[in-house]
Design a binder for these strands. Structure first.
Lengths: 216, 216
DNA sequence: CATGTTCTCCACCCATGGATGGAGAACTTG
DNA sequence: CAAGTTCTCCATCCATGGGTGGAGAACATG
């Protein structure tokens, strides 16, 4: 081959998926996998060492989340290019990943061709967001941002707390809790707390895993 | 090698994951990948054709779900052995997969060693459930089953319907809706509808995808 | 077939949650 | 620094949701 290969770093904690990506890319002309990482911290180390052209990265990672990794690396190396590769976990993460500087967003259900084409596209300096994702983002654009306090309250709602309990935890009056609720219901475009809870989970505002036991 | 290889069928819709599994198993002595399928219908076709010893199968599949595939195949071939391989989608699916006759249940975050060991274990006629999963199942055992009507109501709750709306949809009185709610709250071990909604999503009783637009 | 169990249904009472209006603190922006 | 904006906070009013008791239908089981 005549040109330089595109140097790719693969960051993904699931062994089989990482293995799949590497196996897939290994046989492609013009693409070279120069490193692998299974968590966020390792990702940063590998990046510094390998200085890849493209970093393929999952958002859900042990030790340090994908969004944080992207932000961190881009502080040192602003020209770093990221392709976020994840199963769908709600719009929230997509949004933050793009803000952090990701150039493309792919669902794990993509085809090999799609992946390879996207790597080339991003390496060429362009961006790529699949239509389905783009549409979701567009919908999300219209929605207002929650204030920190509203977020606190929403989190408690998702965790099944009553207004009285929320008031105690946040050390405010029950009446105030209701104000925040009223406000966030409007912003989320829903009419009661139950809808707020499911919307929050669905959009990834409050992660589903947090429901298990913690945040009492 | 002296013995027959274990013939494995891989059923998985995500390309990279399937690729990863195949790449991973290809290099293992004594294991042979005899087929691949990207959806439930194809899985059945491939099974009939290849008669694998072990079928590695995801539960979330296009066209026909993994649980249905397992049931269907085991009607024709009761000795068929399945290893369910999935990201965690709530206890409900696990439970039904095991009831349908799956011998093992692995999360996609597993190591290669774990996967290979499990294939050998299941081929030897044993079963394998990871400790984390086993614990969840044990917890679930104590819980009572919801009645059909209670399930109907729960579904509506998750979709953000008020008692009045639920009453209309199910063509019963609001008072009756409340009775069912009271009953299901007890069975789920929660104290209000919001907790019921999140619990339902978490356990996979009501799938998260159904929240998008349908079931009006 | 009689008895117990389970499911579905309903009415009433009281606690909780949502809507509204409004005040002061903190943070822009001209 | 003055005017506007935003956020946080609170009180009061009314709608909705949850708790309790109880009746009839459908089913299983002795």
């Amino acid at each position: 081959m005549t040109e330089e290969s595109i140097r790719v770093l693969v960051v993904e904690d699931h062994h089989v998926v990482r293995q799949g990506l590497v196996a897939l890319l290994k046989v492609v002309d013009g693409i070279e996998v120069v490193g692998e990482a299974a968590d966020g911290v390792e990702a940063i180390t590998q990046f510094r060492k390998q200085q890849p052209n493209i970093t393929l990265i999952d958002l859900r990672l042990p030790r340090m989340g994908g969004v944080d990794v992207i932000q961190r690396i881009r502080m040192e190396t602003p020209q770093a290019r990221f392709i976020v590769l994840t199963t769908y976990d709600g719009d929230e993460d997509i949004f933050r990943a793009l803000q952090a500087g990701a150039r493309a967003y792919l669902l794990k259900g993509m085809t090999s061709e799609e992946l390879i084409a996207t790597i080339r596209t991003v390496h060429a300096g362009k961006t790529y967001i699949p239509p389905a994702i783009a549409q979701r983002l567009a919908e999300r654009m219209g929605t207002e941002e929650l204030t920190p306090r509203e977020f606190d309250v929403l989190e408690q709602i998702v965790h099944g707390k009553s207004n009285k309990e929320i008031a105690t935890v946040l050390e405010i009056t029950e009446a105030t809790v209701k104000t925040h609720i009223n406000s966030l219901l409007g912003k989320l475009g829903v009419t009661d707390r139950t809808q707020a809870a499911t919307a929050a989970i669905q959009r990834g505002i409050v992660p589903l895993e947090s429901l298990r036991k913690p945040t009492p």
